[in-house]
Nucleic acid binder design. Structure first.
Length: 439
DNA sequence: AATCCACAGGAATTGCGGGTGG
DNA sequence: CCACCCGCAATTCCTGTGGATT
């Protein structure tokens, strides 16, 4: 989803020996824009999370019993992307671990990203392996008594139980993106995890589920739900002023003195606030603005840079979106391109369907029905590739008008990269016929 | 006021690939 | 290994409809 243009930044040094070409000199002499660009990445964990104090306090209060070796309640956390859920949980988790260590208690926080670890087996195995290697020094070679595949699930379950029992203490298991896990593998794992506490004498476990999807509880067994959501927390989206604070804090570290124009941060915040208050988006904007300024050797980051960064993010995501479209949708999109080449800024479903027929035949793919085309058009609208609205033209029927938002060049370029859209085939389409047809 | 176009878009159904349990 | 099921793309059939024209 978030593609990092970072890697494109590296210039190819060619075949010359390093240091001799002078290729990088202009970057060396340039007084940098960035002091520490890493701070702007979403993987970076700041040790201060503005506007999340209430949430942090709640989590801390709920987890507090673990320092007295008691079992904390399970927590379910909701919130859209970029609202700081993961950051807050990691922060509190780290604090809890250090607090316990000072008291000589054993308490582990195990963070699992369920987007990667998405089956019952992998969850159990991953927990076991993490617990085993908790006390390792950096140079110790990791112990893996449970293979990543091969064992029956109940054996893994038993092994993990032994492991927990032998180590003791409170274990907080964080299931990040838990909705992905449940959608893929069901809620059986969650049920099994809740059962652990009944079978353990020496150790305790507690769960924190983090979900982007507010409706995901629909997929849960009521018993699992009631146990998992003993406590519920909602992370609301940030508003523009709050995003400003977040950005300011990181910008102070990330950029050199005085390189940011005054309006940059408020503008980034405003643009990101329009899109559901996503802090990641705001940080991306700021970082890419800086990178753009750096690349063109500008002394400062201006609001214009922010605007082109916004533009870049938009076209980048458009390209990713279009290139991942199924062939049929691409064919529909290509039909629309033909229409717009005929100097028709807006076109109707019927026209698209007619042109599409020829496109599909030229591409040698199945020709879908009109009904299906309307659905594909709706999908393209949903994805923001095109704009559309239903209009009534009285005697001349009721249809859907559609048009391209920003220029077609990005779309055209992306389509031409699809091997099935070779020019040779597309030349078979009789564009002249349409020119006379729609007049 | 009645008509009627050119579709929108809902419901039911089919066909297909991938996964699952026996 | 096969039978089965589920999710999804796609088709078929269908009813609904805003408003210029008659």
């Amino acid at each position: 989803m978030t593609n990092n243009p970072e890697s494109k930044n590296g210039k190819n040094p060619g075949n010359k020996k390093s240091g001799s070409s002078g290729l990088f000199n202009k970057y060396l002499n340039n007084r940098g824009i960035f002091r520490n660009r890493e701070v702007l990445r979403h993987s970076f964990r700041p040790n201060n999370l503005p506007h999340r104090t209430p949430q942090i306090d709640s989590i801390a209060a709920i987890l507090a019993p673990s320092i007295r070796n008691e079992t904390p309640s399970n927590i379910l956390i909701y919130g859209k992307t970029g609202t700081g859920k993961t950051a807050c949980v990691k922060y509190v988790g780290a604090e809890l671990e250090t607090a316990c260590r000072e008291l000589g208690k054993r308490c582990n926080v195990i963070h699992l990203n369920c987007e990667l670890i998405d089956t019952q087996y992998r969850v159990l195995a991953q927990i076991a392996n993490e617990i085993e290697n908790l006390d390792n020094k950096p140079n110790d070679k990791p112990r893996t008594s449970i293979p990543m595949t091969g064992w029956p699930t109940d054996q893994v379950y038993a092994e993990l139980k032994n492991l927990l029992e032998s180590l003791g203490g409170v274990n907080v298991i964080v299931l990040d993106e838990i909705d992905k896990l449940v959608k893929k593998s069901g809620d059986e794992i969650l049920y099994n995890l809740t059962r652990f506490n009944g079978e353990l004498r020496n150790a305790k476990i507690s769960m924190i589920g983090i979900s982007n999807d507010l409706r995901f509880t629909n997929f849960l067994d009521p018993r699992v739900l009631s146990s998992l959501s003993e406590e519920e927390l909602v992370f609301p989206p940030y508003n523009a002023p709050q995003l400003c604070d977040i950005l300011q804090e990181r910008a102070d570290v990330a950029f050199e003195e005085e390189v940011l124009d005054h309006g940059c941060i408020p503008l980034c915040a405003a643009l990101a606030a329009q899109e559901h208050g996503d802090a990641r988006r705001a940080l991306d904007l700021l970082r890419i603005s800086g990178e753009l300024a750096e690349r063109e050797n500008a002394p400062k980051v201006s609001e214009a840079h922010v605007k082109s960064a916004q533009q870049k993010i938009e076209t980048d995501s458009l390209i990713v979106c279009v290139s991942s479209l199924p062939t049929q949708s691409k064919a529909v999109l290509y039909a629309m391109l033909i229409l717009s080449d005929l100097n028709r800024p807006v076109f109707t479903t019927g026209e698209v369907a007619q042109v599409y027929r020829d496109v599909a035949q030229a591409l040698d793919v199945d020709v879908l029905t009109h009904r299906r085309i309307t659905d594909l058009i709706s999908e393209l609208t949903m994805l923001g590739v095109i704009n559309s609205r239903v209009v009534s033209r009285g005697r001349y029927g009721r249809t859907k008008e559609m048009w391209f938002g920003t220029g077609t060049s990005g779309i055209r370029e992306t389509l031409s990269k699809d091997e099935r859209f070779e020019e040779e085939r597309l030349h078979q389409i009789d564009i002249g016929r349409f020119r006379t047809l729609f007049r």
